[in-house]
């Protein structure tokens, strides 16, 4: 029976799709079977980030409506054989997703995979609520920036009210994943620090993904960052975050400011 995890944020553009692809790949690399499901109907992108955009035949809506079988719509990754993608529809709109249909598809995925990762659309409307509906755990992707933190707070409220688990009075495990973190700017007091974000949202930290050029390079290539450059800082951070998601106790090191020769000689500036 799978763990169903929703990757959500409220705000758009913070890295939900990148995160779903990277965590899904990292989990699948350990030999566990993983399905990544794109819930962003009309604006699908998980296929593109995974480099599978030309292999999409059927999608989530076809399966929800019974026009295709789940195994017809699932796309197996060419690099990691335990990783599968269920793409979103690009032509239909989210109203084509029925509550019962989504429940049935998630249930079927749950039987067949070790992990089901649901990539939520931005916003707090129906699409986002359907993506989180059946989740056992949530990864809340947050940028160290006021609007992102505020929207995360809003999404946390929804996770506690609108999920199946919440309605049954059960707990949904919630984790914060900070992305696009710039240690140097945080150290200079120009960016919210990790401690600030965790104190404001009062949730445990799954990981810190540093701002990195490698993330854009990876999506340009259609290769999740954990595969495109496994030694890079974001790849290592995602791999460790995946291990924490599995329940492993991996120490989190807050990335320190890289100090150049100039700052070493002259010390840190006023702040």
């Amino acid at each position: 029976m799978a763990n169903v995890v929703v990757v959500t944020s409220g705000k758009g553009g913070v890295g939900k799709t990148t995160t779903t692809a990277a965590l899904g790949t990292a989990l699948a690399q350990t030999g566990q079977t993983v399905a990544v499901v794109d819930f962003d109907v009309g604006l699908r992108n998980l296929d593109l980030v995974l480099g599978a955009e030309r292999r999409v035949v059927y999608d989530l809506i076809n399966v929800v409506q019974g026009a295709a079988k789940l195994q017809q719509a699932l796309i197996r990754d060419k690099r990691i054989e335990t990783l599968w993608l269920l793409p979103a529809s690009q032509t239909r709109d989210k109203d084509a997703l029925t509550d019962e249909g989504v429940a049935r598809v998630i249930d079927e995925l749950r039987q067949r995979f070790d992990w089901v990762l649901c990539d939520s659309p931005a916003g707090i409307e129906r699409g986002a609520q359907l993506a989180m509906r059946h989740a056992d755990a949530a990864v809340i992707v947050t940028n160290p920036e006021v609007s992102s933190v505020r929207d995360s707070d809003r999404i946390i409220g929804l996770l506690d009210a609108k999920t199946e688990r919440a309605e049954r009075g059960e707990r949904i495990a919630k984790h914060i994943l900070v992305t696009r973190f710039d240690p140097a700017r945080a150290a200079r007091g120009e960016m919210l620090g990790i401690a600030d974000i965790l104190e404001i949202l009062s949730l445990p930290l799954l990981g810190i993904i540093p701002e990195s050029q490698e993330v854009l390079r990876a999506s340009n290539l259609g290769t999740p960052v954990v595969l495109s450059d496994p030694a890079s800082a974001p790849a290592r951070a995602y791999t460790e975050a995946a291990r924490r998601l599995e329940g492993e106790d991996v120490e989190i090191v807050i990335p320190a400011e890289k100090r150049g020769l100039f700052t070493k000689l002259f010390g840190r500036r006023a702040a």
Binding site: R154, I200, R269
Partner: peptide, 19 residues
């Protein structure tokens, strides 16, 4: 240079209200 503490304080006040 120090805009982060301002961000933190604004968020704390705003979220207390919104919650």
């Amino acid at each position: 240079r120090n805009s982060a503490p301002v961000a933190r304080e604004r968020l704390q006040i705003l979220l207390a209200h919104e919650r």
